[in-house]
Amino acid sequence: MHRRIPLSLSRVRTFASHSPSPPSGPNTVGPYQVFDRHAKVLQRDRSATRDGGARSRTTDYVRDEVADRMIERLLDIKRKFNTILDLGSGPGHFSKLLDAEVTNKAVLLESSEKLLHRDPDSEFEVEVERIHADEERLLDVVEPNSQEAIVSCLSLHWINDLPGVLVQIKEALKPDGVFIGAMFGGDTLFELRTSLQLAELEREGGISPHVSPMTDTRDVSNLLGRAGFTLLTVDIDEVRVAYPSMFELMEDLQDMGESNAIVGRRNFIHRDTLAAASAIYKALHGNEDGSVPATFQIIWMIGWKPAPTQPKPLERGSAKKSMKDVL
């Protein structure tokens, strides 16, 4: 006879070396677990509390720069919003830049509670609401067809189920609602990735993942299309930062809460390998003044939820004139 196993017992036991990641939500499909979301929340919580948040604030520079570029894109939309949902907001890098001419209210949604409450409401110009929830389970906290605009400023790169989250974003939007996103693309930190790989290969004879796999521009357009967005705009941009050495870069990444969180990662890098990677980083990528560069590639995406009032391309094959006659 078929017996129902209680849910708590049926959960697969994980090895002690992996911290357990909760299974993906019921709204999502394709449970590819690349990132350890549980570890990521812990890392981000710790980053927000280190030195009372001071360390986290000094390493805001990448996110602040991208938030600044993002607000320009939002201002291109000549519309006043009642609320804007900031998905994976962190302490609100983007929402701090919003003013009363654009929106009445900003809703911050973030999975790290400490980071969400890092900065007081007085730093925002508009009314703020904070929701502590998992970005991967957006529809659990946000009603479908309820949002006028959803933005995501550098949070989607830790999402396991990117297609699922994009579908949820589209569902959460009202018809003719807009989604603007910025996420780290495949060339991000390629210097660090290659240096660590070369160092591990030469010193230890094998490699393990230290820098996350990241999405490609082409994939993003396909995913947006598949999620049902229309009028897509996807482009790329770069932020390059110079550091004294690889060690400062790694320290800053940790303070940003951007440490490695790949499932099954090695939490340990041998000191020899670390020293070797630093030497390789400088030899392969170093600037002339002795500093080392780090590239952050940003993929921008804008998509609209379809609505009958929007301009649309005509049906395929519905043309009345042949292109041959025109040319």
């Binding site: 070369l198 290969l201 030469e202 010193r203 004879g205 030497a279 390789i280 400088k282 030899a283 392969l284």
Partner: peptide
């Protein structure tokens, strides 16, 4: 620097 130069010279075919 010496180590970095050595890797730079061989990085297309690095082995242990």
């Amino acid at each position: 620097e010496a180590y970095g130069k050595c890797i730079l010279a061989t990085y297309t075919d690095v082995r242990k």
